[in-house]
Design a protein around this nucleic acid. Structure first.
Length: 1044
RNA sequence: GGGCCAGUAGCUUAGCUAGGUUGAGCGCUCGGCUGAUAACCGGGAGGUCCGCGGUUCAAAUCCGCGCUGGCCCA
């Protein structure tokens, strides 16, 4: 073993990590680790691609750390794990950032700049971000194939999306249809919900009467968008709310109005009626089917034609209606999302007489050509002129605006492309049964609910930076869908080189196809895909399928994916939808769903609140491995993670204990030239503690595997770190220390070396997934390999496992702890021996354990003797009621029985206690007794027994105690003098109390040996003199350094 | 407004599936150890188990209604 002696005294991640990173580079450690498992069975892990909009944040750091830990573990366990990372690189957020960078204000700026140039800029921007994020992930110590990530903008990847879409198309799952979108009239494009910003604006607020056709009276509606009334096709009510038919009176006029009951007063007041009476009330349901006349049918002749269509201009019920304002909602399916949905459910047509620029089309009759918001006053005038206006005012309210140009958006129905996943919903639901989720409720409560409610997927966007929709249309509307670059080249009218074509716009827009059946020329539809379709194709596109087939055949579908809970409706869903649509199969087997990283107060981290903590800050303060261990030490299954500086700090301290444990034996091993190959635990003369810690090691390994295999990473980490701190550092190392100090070559020392070596070597492998840098650094002195991460997982060895011994040692440690407790009550420190310890127990296992381990126990507690008894002395026994037995027997009187029993001595209870005037006799299991101790003895309980420590003193004990007190002082002075361990000294003791000195000198040989003193003198030529107070006695100690 | 998840000591949490006097780590405090030493170990204090109801002899645990936070949807 080649031991490096320059280990720093404290674990400092800022020392260890850069050094290890540099070593990894030099030694090609990552490649070595992968190579070591190249012949193992395949395991297809699929990385969910983060969006290349900026840098890593704490959530993505957690995500990648978790993936990294799992991958490292799976590799050690004998799997050839795929680890190609991915990046999601298309989409509007990048377009917007590029526009900002270029100072663009709207779509025409892009057209002017040239789509090709614009796409070039987007590509460059996304690639720059990718490089930065690669570096960020590397800095977390994440080992993935950073040289070769999959990129959604590569031709191979884009082809993967095309291929799948084409499969769905062939299966009849692609449809063109209408949908209401957010439209910015200035930018002339639809925008995503996330790009809408809300601000207060003032709008008209109008109450309008829609006259009923076949009876007297009007429906009263309220709206802040008069411009949508020309497109009105129905009125919606709340099925369960109460509505009123009201006779409203103003001057000589009288009319009948329909409004929700709770709104009657407000509406009538708004309309300035003099009086009213409610004629009738009924449920909203009863209004359904009433037919009304569109109030603007003269201005919009098209409304007259629509009126003839089935169901138009009638009342329907809808979930979205609330009973404020009038309780009746004017609905224009062409200009409202809800209006559209309900319209579709009722087979109503869509009427949207507005162009993408927000101007009315010819279908809007008199309003044609006007910008919709400017037409509000005209609509109001016309309604007033027709006598339909009940009241008019203005209203301040929140309204969506385009985030780039701040123009109020409009809702408008447009043509979009859909994948009709609702047609395969049964298959989707069947397929999710074939996947296994951690936690299981993520699938059963959350994901299934989402899938059941899924609607058809709108996959088209009217943008530039994305995967073009691969549909070409002829003038006659015949379509051809293209699945591969090869196919594109075959169908293209002009020559296309499939290996060189960039599938982005505008290149692909310019390719004209010949329809394979009609022979007509076909042009591509202008839309691009929703970015979610990009990542939906990841399971095959990350394998470069369909251009490369081998990996797909061998690996697909993915064995494992790991993402946060927001991906329920994101990547978990989009992959399922696309997988089933294209391949009729769920594209992943196992899912681990973790939570989000929150701030210290449990709030979401956000820029506007200013509570963001970056991974870099945490790394700068405490290092990568402590951060990783922190991130992995909380529930990894669905729960959110609260960030905590203290917790990271504390993690660092735990790792420091690990570091010290590891560092402790190395100098001894080095001095003695210990070779692990020559002295193994199998043939070493191990003692009972060695056997114990080795057994614990096997148990920990088995437990660790169990936890990791169910992705309870936090629990696996805890099992390991508890073992290293509680068992190894706080117990084993303490016990074994004196053996390390043996000067000659002893079997006992070698056994300790071999044991500690085995523990450290195997533990370091287990530590590797969590703290890869620290583990690597530690392993440098433990084995001659390129990297610890290339090794196999240490398989538990049943031959070394001794459960009886482990149980016994648990008892010993419990008893030891109780003994320390009793000593403290007696104020007798451990340095002073005690005469005897008595353990009273009726538990055979305890007797067994203490008899077997008596020597170790006595050593640990510094006692001269141990007695094990059934019962100790004549103690007063105080009753403690056992509710587990009393409850079922006495029912509602249990509380009274308990009070009657509690705290009474045994003899008062054995013949029964009085409860409510009656004598109740208790069974043995209903009462236990606590014992009180005599004076010279202190007691402390542990599980299975009670320890009595007899602290009475005699001269022998005092002699040892004082001797050890003096030794300790001399040792401290040696340290103050900065003496070498081997340096000889001479000492003098000037003790206030002669008896104390006399007693201590009975142990003078012990003092000489422990302090490496040649002699104890009356007086020495002291290099250091110090005054001490030993147990109330003043002592002056002189130390003279002996000449060599 | 709806679905799902979480709420236990100052902080981070275990226990909840299968009801029986809530357990740990950090921090605090008191003490010990002194050949891992700016390390290490032990004791103690600290809890309306988010609130209110219900089931039960008995509820942190099961049920219902709320509150707070998170994710998603409307």
């Amino acid at each position: 073993m080649d031991i490096d002696d320059e280990l720093s005294e404290r674990y400092d991640p800022h020392d260890v990590e850069p050094e290890v990173k540099e070593y990894w580079e030099e030694a090609d450690a990552y490649e070595t680790a992968k190579e070591a498992h190249a012949d193992d069975p395949d395991l297809y892990f699929l990385d969910g691609p983060p969006y290349t909009s900026g840098q890593m944040h704490l959530g993505t750091a957690w995500n990648k750390t978790l993936k990294d830990a799992v991958i490292r573990y799976l590799r050690m366990r004998g799997n050839d794990v795929t680890d190609r990372p991915g990046y999601d690189m298309h989409g509007l957020p990048i377009e917007v950032k590029v526009e900002e960078r270029l100072g663009f204000e709207n779509k025409s700026d892009i057209e002017e700049f040239g789509v090709e140039n614009f796409i070039g800029e987007c590509k460059e921007f996304a690639n720059e971000n990718l490089d930065a994020m690669n570096d960020d992930f590397r800095s977390m110590g994440v080992w993935m194939d950073w040289e070769n990530p999959y990129r959604t903008l590569s031709p191979e990847y884009m082809e993967g999306a095309w291929w799948a879409f084409d499969r769905a198309y062939d299966r009849g799952l692609v449809e063109k249809g209408q949908r209401v979108v957010n439209q910015c009239p200035r930018c002339e494009t639809s925008i995503a919900d996330a790009e809408v910003e809300y601000e207060d604006i003032e709008s008209p607020s109008i109450y309008v009467k829609f006259p009923l056709e076949d009876e007297d009276g009007s429906l009263v509606i309220w709206t802040t968008t008069p411009w949508t009334i020309p497109a009105n096709l129905y009125v919606a009510v709340d099925a369960d709310a109460e509505y009123a038919k009201v006779r409203a009176i103003r001057a000589d006029d009288e009319e009948v109005l329909y409004v929700a009951s709770e709104c009657v007063e407000d509406v009538l007041r708004a309309g300035r009626y003099d009086d009213y009476d409610v004629r009738e009330t009924f449920d909203g349901e009863e209004l359904v089917g009433k037919k009304y006349t569109h109030p603007l049918e003269d201005e919009v002749p098209r409304q007259k034609e629509l009126d003839d269509e089935q169901g138009v201009h009638e009342v329907y019920t809808a979930e979205f209606v609330t009973t404020d304002r009038t309780g009746l909602v004017h609905a224009a399916p062409g200009h409202g999302v809800d209006d559209f949905e309900v319209g579709q459910e009722n087979d109503l047509p869509v009427f949207a007489p507005v162009g993408p620029d927000g101007r009315y089309t010819d279908e809007a009759g008199e309003y044609a050509g006007k910008f919709v918001r400017d037409a509000n006053p005209d609509v109001i005038d016309d309604l007033t002129g027709g006598g339909y206006m009940l009241a008019e005012g203005t209203q301040e309210h929140r309204y969506g605006h385009c985030w780039r140009c701040d123009t109020p958006i409009i809702f408008t129905a447009t043509d979009q492309w859909f994948i009709t996943v609702t047609d395969v919903k049964d298959r989707l639901l069947d397929e999710i049964e074939r996947s296994e989720w951690h936690p299981d409720w993520a699938r059963d409560s959350r994901f299934r609910d989402w899938v059941e409610n899924a609607r058809d997927w709108n996959v088209s966007r009217q943008r530039y930076w994305g995967i073009p929709v691969p549909i070409w249309e002829t003038e006659d509307g015949d379509r051809v869908c293209v699945g591969t670059r090869e196919e594109l080249a075959e169908l293209a009218v002009d020559e296309v080189n499939p290996d060189e074509i960039d599938l982005h716009r505008p290149d692909v827009d310019e390719i004209v196809l010949e329809h394979p059946e009609t022979g007509e020329r076909a042009h591509r539809v202008e839309d691009i895909f929703d970015v979610w379709l990009d990542s939906a194709a990841a399971s095959w596109a990350a394998l470069d399928y369909p251009s490369e087939e081998e990996d797909f055949e061998e690996l697909w579908p993915a064995d494992l994916i790991i993402e946060a809970h927001d991906q329920t409706r994101g990547w978990f869903w989009s992959q399922l939808g696309m997988g089933v649509s294209a391949l009729d199969e769920i594209p992943y087997h196992e899912v681990v769903m973790h939570g989000h990283a929150l701030d210290e107060d449990g709030r979401k981290m956000s820029k506007s609140v200013g509570n963001i903590v970056t991974p870099q800050e945490a790394i700068d303060r405490h290092g990568v491995d402590p951060l990783r261990c922190f991130l992995l030490s909380h529930d990894q299954q669905g729960d959110d993670l609260r960030f905590s500086w203290d917790e990271i700090e504390s993690k660092k301290r735990t790792l420091n204990v690990v570091w010290n444990t590891y560092r402790f034996p190395l100098p001894y091993m080095r001095l003695d030239g210990f070779e692990p190959d020559e002295t193994t635990v199998e043939d070493a003369e191990t003692t009972v503690v060695d056997d114990w810690v080795l057994s614990r090691l096997q148990t920990v390994e088995a437990r660790y595997v169990e936890q990791m295999d169910s992705y309870e990473i936090d629990k696996a980490q805890k099992v390991l770190l508890d073992f290293l701190t509680e068992d190894v550092s706080r117990f084993y190392v303490q016990v074994v220390r004196p053996r390390m100090w043996d000067e000659e070559d002893s079997p006992s020392k070698n056994a300790a070396y071999a044991t500690l070596y085995a523990v450290l070597e195997e533990s370091t492998r287990m530590l590797a997934p969590f703290a890869p840098h620290l583990a690597e650094r530690m392993y440098e002195n433990l084995g001659d390999v390129t990297t610890v991460h290339a090794l196999d997982f240490p398989e538990p060895d049943d031959a070394l496992r001794d459960e009886t011994l482990e149980r016994r040692m648990d008892v010993l440690r419990d008893a030891e702890e109780a003994t320390a407790n009793a000593r403290q009550q007696a104020e007798r420190k451990l340095r002073w021996p005690v005469k005897r310890v008595i353990v009273s127990t009726e538990n055979d296992d305890v007797v067994d354990a203490l008899e077997a381990l008596e020597e170790l126990y006595l050593d640990r507690v510094n006692s001269k003797s141990l007695e094990i008894v059934d019962e100790y002395g004549e103690l007063v026994e105080v009753a403690e009621p056992q509710m587990g037995a009393i409850g079922p027997e006495f029912g509602e009187d249990a509380e009274k029985v308990m009070n009657a029993v509690k705290g009474r001595p045994r003899n008062e209870i054995e013949d029964g206690v009085e409860v409510d005037g009656e004598t109740v006799v208790l069974d043995a299991e209903m009462v236990e007794y606590r014992e009180e101790t005599p004076d010279n003895v202190e007691a402390a309980e542990f599980e299975g027994g009670t320890v009595y420590v007899d602290v009475s003193l005699d001269d022998e004990i005092r002699a040892e105690g004082y001797a050890r007190e003096l030794v300790r002082r001399v040792q401290e002075m040696r340290k103050n003098l900065d003496l070498d361990v081997e340096q000889r000294i001479r000492v003098s003791f000037d003790v206030e109390d002669d008896e104390v000195l006399e007693l201590a000198m009975r142990e003078s040989d012990y003092v000489l040996e422990e302090t490496r003193a040649d002699s104890i003198e009356e007086e020495v030529d002291a290099d250091l003199t110090e005054d001490w107070n030993v147990e109330g006695v003043d002592v002056t100690v002189g130390v003279e350094v002996a000449n060599v």
